[in-house]
Computed example of a mutant assay.
Amino acid sequence: MESKFYAMDSPKDVLKLLGIPEKQAGELLSISRTKPISSGKDYISAGQTPKTFAIVINGLFRYYYIDEKGNEFTKGFIPAATVLSAYSAMRYETSSFFYIQALEDSEILEIDYKKWLLLQQEDSFWDKFLIQALEKGYFTKEKRERELLLLDAEARYKIFTTEFPDLEKRIKLQIVASYLGIQPESLSRIRKNKPA
C-alpha cells in the first residue's frame, strides 16, 4: 500500500481530502486551531496525558519510543492528511507510552478531544470517521508487526523504500534504521548492496 505525502494549502483542503463534508468540516474547525510545530519538537511526549488530537496539514511526524538506555524505536511515520494521536492515552486519560515528533517544520489542525466527543454525540458521521481512522491504524499496526516478526532487514528495507519513496532524503538515516529495527551500520551495509 503506497503512502502519499500530500502538500496541503489549508485545513479545509485536508478535511476535504479526508472526505469530511462541508457542514461537519465547519463544525470541526470551530473546535480546532492551527498550530505550527518546528522540526525536532514533540507534539506529545511519553508520560504526558494528551487532551487533543490533530490532523496533519503539512509536514511529517513520527511515533517513537525511548527505552531506559536512551535507544529510540520509531513506530511509524505520519504524513499530511493523516490523523495524529496517542489515542489510547487520550481515550482513557492515561500517560502516553510514546512520543510524537515533527521530523520537519509542520502545521497541524489541533482538536480538543472533549469538544470532539460532543460533536460525536450529536452526529453519527463522527462514529464513521473514528472507525475509519482506527481501522487504518489497526491495519498499519498489524502489517508492521508481521514485517518485523517474519521478514529480514533487507526485505523490510525494500518495503520501506516502496511505501515511502524519497523519505530517506527527508529524514536522518538513524531514524530509518530505528524504524526498520536495525542498527545504522546495518542499514548502511544494506544500502551499499542495494541494486542500482
Score class of each variant (00 low, 15 high):
10 S>Y: 06
104 E>G: 02
193 N>Q: 14
117 L>V: 06
123 D>C: 03
86 A>E: 07
159 I>T: 12
121 Q>D: 11
57 I>A: 02
61 F>T: 10
196 A>S: 11
152 D>V: 04
103 L>S: 01
163 E>R: 13
100 I>A: 02
88 S>C: 05
175 I>R: 06
188 S>P: 03
109 L>C: 03
177 A>M: 08
149 L>V: 10
128 K>E: 09
48 Q>N: 06
156 R>P: 03
131 I>W: 01
181 G>C: 07
40 G>Y: 06
174 Q>L: 11
185 E>V: 13
133 A>G: 00
83 V>R: 06
138 Y>P: 00
20 I>A: 04
60 L>V: 07
192 K>I: 03
123 D>N: 15
129 F>W: 14
75 K>H: 12
104 E>W: 05
159 I>Y: 03
46 A>I: 04
139 F>L: 12
38 S>H: 13
89 A>S: 14
104 E>M: 11
183 Q>D: 10
181 G>P: 02
169 K>N: 12
65 Y>T: 08
66 I>Y: 04
30 S>N: 15
190 I>L: 15
10 S>Q: 09
40 G>L: 07
101 Q>I: 05
164 F>A: 02
196 A>Y: 06
58 N>D: 13
171 I>V: 15
114 K>P: 00
67 D>E: 12
54 A>I: 08
11 P>W: 03
130 L>W: 08
172 K>F: 05
40 G>H: 06
150 L>P: 00
57 I>D: 00
60 L>E: 02
12 K>C: 04
76 G>W: 05
75 K>W: 09
27 E>V: 01
110 E>L: 06
101 Q>K: 13
144 R>E: 07
182 I>H: 06
190 I>P: 00
147 E>Q: 11
15 L>Q: 04
87 Y>D: 07
56 V>W: 03
20 I>M: 15
73 F>Y: 15
4 K>Y: 12
123 D>A: 04
6 Y>D: 04
7 A>T: 14
139 F>A: 11
189 R>L: 13
62 R>E: 14
155 A>N: 04
160 F>D: 02
27 E>H: 09
61 F>W: 07
53 F>E: 08
93 E>T: 09
47 G>M: 00
49 T>Q: 08
31 I>P: 00
92 Y>Q: 08
14 V>W: 01
56 V>F: 02
82 T>I: 01
45 S>P: 01
186 S>V: 08
135 E>S: 11
48 Q>A: 06
143 K>D: 11
190 I>S: 03
100 I>Y: 00
108 I>L: 14
